[in-house]
Design a protein around this nucleic acid. Structure first.
Lengths: 248, 248
DNA sequence: CGCGCAGTTGAATGGACTCAAGCACGGTGG
DNA sequence: CCACCGTGCTTGAGTCCATTCAACTGCGCG
């Protein structure tokens, strides 16, 4: 039974048995890490690429002013920093938003993996998509109003979780983000995030309680915040089916 | 005499004569393109990686609302889209801000280039830095005030141009960006950009006329907008010297 | 039981936007 | 040569969205 990481790479390239075997062996080393701990820290020398097998994490940049900007979410199966060992120092940190399982992959193991053309292709695609997400986030913060910012992010997470089989048939999924975290992500104050969430709730576009989010009418949410999933490149190999290949 | 592209890659890895020869041969095909034309367009299938040998370009995303967000500037020597042919469709466009010289590199030629370990390393570093810049921009738009946004961008461009020898000894450099373009980059209206430029001028932090920008006191500008060049990873191979190796 | 974190709501403030008018420059054509 | 026009820049006045400040609620947990 493949883990989240293998499932993710399969979306980008066909992996033969040997490749899958190698990936599974690698990920068997997974170690549990507690919520709130940092996987890597801004200013430090990067030692290894890391894989997130379960749990949520975020990349963030801290400013001298004390403010911080979250510049990415890492969901189960996501890759922390491909090739990052080439750089001298990290320009951002990665922190865990929930308890998680993580595998550290040394530069040598990374090179080993990339001998497989299919794995290399999949990893490269994955980083291209990460970059595309970053561009979309910049667009969101630069151009969209507060309501659309919140809604747009919700749509993105819905699509991304759906792609790894973590949305149930009632369009419900885990959503462990605090309003504070949302604020640091979207360039808004937590107070204002709160008001926008309220409006989305009042308009029956989301249902949120106890860190569980449900989209009663995904199409309407997508429409009202102008969400276009093209940037996620989900149809990279095959078009995403409405349901999930292996339900969670 | 190496071109801007070779000079840029040299910052990331030692290139032997054969590698340089290959790069020079490739870039000899450069073609002139007029200001305002698009190198690639959002929604189209990507056909080739492109190299910008001279001139300025920008990546931008267009929204259904008619607004647009600029998500990156390409300066002389910059690489448009490494590996992008792996994706089905472009999620953004690239447009020329000035007249320019451009080389298109097919996927096959790209693979050919990457047989050289040193070239591959340099290209990878380059994309890592591009991603780092994107994260910093998101931080700028998300967390900084309007004045610091403008100042921060000016600092970044100063550093980047300095690294490719396009800043003269009086800290003067070409700055072909209109206030409209700055607005679309920083998430501000052109009117507000104008006011911020005025304040920077009034405080003697910049001198700007006829598309020429000068920093009378770079250190003070860097300080007042909280700029930290770490994210540009300029010390990747060797520390940047105060002057330029080959003055332009 | 009391503490702390996350969320909620209100009122006042302010930074950036909108709308609008006018200016300066460069290119074009009569 | 100069009138014309378009693009980009400049400045002012009024508005609005998001922030700030502050108080209060609800819940989980020791």
């Amino acid at each position: 039974m493949p883990n989240a990481f293998v499932r993710k790479l399969r979306r980008f390239a066909d992996l033969d048995d040997e490749a899958v075997g190698r990936l599974v062996r690698l990920t068997s080393r997974a170690e549990p890490r507690g919520r709130g701990s940092d996987l890597v820290r801004q200013g430090e020398r990067p030692l290894a690429m890391q894989l997130l097998l379960s749990g949520w994490a975020c990349r963030y940049k801290s400013l001298a002013s004390g403010r911080r900007q979250i510049v990415g979410f890492l969901l189960p199966g996501d890759i922390c920093d491909l090739h990052v060992t080439l750089l001298r120092r990290m320009d951002h940190s990665i922190g865990l938003l929930t308890d998680a399982c993580v595998v550290a992959v040394t530069a040598a193991e990374e090179q080993e993996l990339e001998r497989h053309a299919s794995i290399r292709t999949a990893l490269t695609c994955s980083t291209l998509v990460d970059e595309a997400i970053l561009r979309e986030w910049l667009t969101t913060v630069g151009q969209r109003g507060a309501l659309a910012r919140v809604g747009h992010l919700v749509c993105e997470i819905w699509y991304r979780l759906k792609a790894v089989g973590q949305v149930d048939e009632r369009e419900r999924f885990a959503f462990p983000l605090t309003q504070d975290v949302l604020g640091d992500t979207l360039g808004l104050t937590p107070v204002h995030v709160n008001r926008m969430l309220r409006r989305l709730r009042d308009e029956r576009l989301i249902e949120l309680e106890r860190k569980q989010l449900r989209l009663p009418d995904p199409a309407r949410l997508v429409a009202t915040c102008g969400f276009d999933p093209a940037y996620l490149h989900l149809d990279q190999k095959r078009r995403l089916t409405s349901g999930m290949s292996s339900a969670g």
